Amino acid sequence: MTAYPQKITFGEMREIGTRDVLVYCRDPKCGHRMTFNADCWPDDMRLSDIEPDFVCVACGKRGADLRPKFSQAHIGAG
């Protein structure tokens, strides 16, 4: 069984202003990634709680790396 580091909860993610997650395949040779809206998961669930359940549609490997999708920073004139 693969150990997944404990990550923030979906509620904590929403508190910092993001509602979407980036989902990356765990296989470094694959590199497949997708973006999902996270509104379907409860506030007290951690991103790491569901990582083992994902199966990559490109390579079939089980397990994913989920990260909050932050807005792009706007650098320059303001």
Results as ranks from 00 to 15, higher is better:
74 H>M: 12
77 A>G: 07
20 D>Y: 07
57 V>R: 12
16 I>D: 08
28 P>D: 08
61 K>I: 15
7 K>M: 01
18 T>F: 00
48 S>W: 10
51 E>P: 06
67 R>Y: 09
56 C>S: 09
72 Q>K: 14
27 D>V: 03
25 C>Q: 00
48 S>Y: 09
14 R>L: 05
73 A>N: 11
4 Y>Q: 01
41 W>T: 07
27 D>C: 10
3 A>F: 11
58 A>N: 14
61 K>R: 15
67 R>Q: 15
71 S>V: 09
11 G>V: 00
60 G>F: 03
74 H>W: 13
62 R>S: 13
11 G>L: 04
32 H>P: 01
28 P>E: 07
53 D>Q: 11
12 E>Y: 02
71 S>E: 15
59 C>M: 04
21 V>G: 01
67 R>F: 07
13 M>W: 04
20 D>W: 03
71 S>L: 13
37 N>G: 10
22 L>G: 05
25 C>W: 02
11 G>P: 04
52 P>D: 02
35 T>L: 14
1 M>Q: 09
72 Q>P: 12
41 W>I: 07
44 D>T: 07
67 R>T: 09
65 D>I: 15
23 V>R: 05
73 A>L: 15
16 I>V: 13
75 I>C: 07
66 L>Y: 00
23 V>H: 06
51 E>F: 04
18 T>W: 01
23 V>P: 05
50 I>S: 07
3 A>E: 14
65 D>R: 10
62 R>H: 10
4 Y>S: 00
65 D>A: 11
21 V>Y: 06
42 P>F: 05
56 C>N: 08
69 K>M: 06
38 A>R: 02
36 F>D: 04
44 D>N: 11
43 D>C: 02
6 Q>A: 14
40 C>H: 12
56 C>L: 07
6 Q>C: 07
48 S>V: 03
53 D>E: 11
24 Y>T: 07
49 D>M: 07
76 G>M: 01
60 G>A: 03
73 A>D: 11
40 C>S: 12
71 S>H: 13
54 F>C: 00
49 D>G: 06
65 D>H: 13
29 K>M: 08
78 G>A: 12
23 V>Q: 06
49 D>Y: 06
33 R>A: 09
31 G>N: 03
6 Q>N: 08
21 V>C: 12
76 G>N: 03
38 A>C: 02
37 N>A: 10
15 E>R: 10
6 Q>E: 14
15 E>D: 15
54 F>N: 01
58 A>D: 15
21 V>N: 03
12 E>D: 08
26 R>V: 15
58 A>T: 09
14 R>C: 01
57 V>D: 14
48 S>A: 09
22 L>P: 00
10 F>A: 05
7 K>Y: 02
71 S>K: 13
49 D>N: 09
44 D>Q: 09
34 M>N: 12
78 G>N: 11
66 L>W: 00
27 D>G: 04
2 T>N: 14
64 A>F: 01
39 D>N: 10
27 D>W: 03
36 F>A: 06
65 D>K: 13
59 C>S: 03
46 R>W: 01
